[in-house]
Design a protein around this nucleic acid. Structure first.
Length: 324
DNA sequence: CAAAGTTCCTGCGAGC
DNA sequence: TGCTCGCAGGAACTTT
């Protein structure tokens, strides 16, 4: 699923559920996502409060009171879902008593687990396998009643705990290029990074060490908006000294515009991406080339047709008529 | 069949 | 010529 706009959409959805809340209980239902979770993963999370939820490129970063950072990546098919366990509120639970309600079956466990009275003691309420779906690998039961569930069929996603003080040295983050929506990302920077590159412009934009957060969809869309061919050599957006030309400026503007548009639309929903409330992202309806092979180019004055070809093992969609 | 991502490995060319 | 070194491209991971 997830490129920068989808991850940012997820971050915004998770923030109200997680920031300022404590991990009352954590379930690691699979020990292996992309890599094995640390053996003490649950212990290092439970009891910690999330002081902030940030994003770097396609990574989500949850700062914890322990001084560690929970680094999360959605891979290709990962998604987070936030639900509210209303049974933790006695007045709500009382309105609909049920013989099947797990909370009624566990009074003794509840009492045994009730050291604090603000959520931790109610953790037993949350355990409800009937609510879990296939590929729900990690579940965060927050002290505010929010239940945050990580689902990832392909398990290319990952979670890792890193000390805040060592975050700059973290291998996953260390080599990342600038944020495409940040001030550091401009025509001069992009041109300098592409100067001397023998690879294609498309491959350069997918290279997370040049600019961090773009993926296959938004690279295709940005190149289209900038009228630049994905086959063009990356070095041709710079002059011989590495200074930016007009192509670099157009490309930077196109990248920022398409990412901002996509974030405003809640990201793109193809197979797996959902906003954390389960709503679909909407930006897929605004794709101009991605997955539009054979359709007429919609660029003003262009009579071209959108084509697809495989580049570095991945589908590239473009208009050969207006992208040069 | 092809898929929104990242890491690891191999092969090639440049340069010493 | 031969040997590094770095870059570019491809495979692998997994499930639907």
């Amino acid at each position: 699923m997830p490129e920068l706009p989808e991850v940012e959409t997820v971050r915004r959805g998770l923030a109200p559920a997680m920031e300022g809340a404590r991990f009352a209980r954590v379930e690691a239902r699979r020990a292996d996502l992309r890599w094995p979770l640390p053996k003490d993963f649950v212990a290092r999370l439970e009891g910690q409060t999330v002081t902030g939820l940030g994003r770097r490129a396609k990574y989500l970063l949850a700062d914890l009171t322990s001084g560690e950072v929970l680094v999360m990546h959605l891979g290709m098919s990962g998604s987070f879902r936030v639900s509210q366990d209303d049974r933790r509120h006695p007045e709500v639970a009382a309105k609909r008593p049920s013989k099947d309600d797990h909370s009624r079956r566990r009074p003794s466990r509840l009492a045994a687990l009730a050291p604090q009275g603000d959520g931790t003691d109610l953790a037993a309420y949350y355990h409800d396998k009937g609510r879990l779906a296939a590929h729900d690998h990690v579940v965060f039961h927050m002290s505010n009643g929010a239940v945050v569930t990580f689902n990832d069929p392909r398990r290319f996603g990952s979670m890792k705990l890193v000390k805040r003080a060592e975050i700059e040295r973290e291998p996953l983050l260390r080599a990342l290029g600038p944020e495409p929506l940040g001030n550091a990302f401009d025509a001069a920077m992009l041109a300098a990074a592409c100067a001397g590159k023998k690879t294609s412009l498309k491959a350069a934009l997918l290279d997370q060490t040049i600019v961090a957060g773009l993926g296959n969809i938004y690279v295709c869309e940005a190149l289209y908006r900038a009228h630049l061919s994905p086959k063009r050599r990356a070095s041709t957006i710079a002059d011989r000294k590495g200074a930016p030309n007009e192509r670099a400026a157009a490309l930077v503007d196109a990248i920022k515009a398409v990412l901002n548009d996509a974030i405003a639309a809640g990201g793109s929903s193809l197979r797996d991406h959902r906003q954390t409330d389960g709503e679909l992202g909407m930006f897929q309806h605004n794709f101009r080339v991605y997955d539009r092979e054979g359709e007429a180019c919609r660029m003003r004055g262009c009579k071209g047709t959108i084509r697809r070809f495989v580049q570095n093992g991945r589908s590239t969609f473009w208009c050969p008529a207006c992208q040069r």
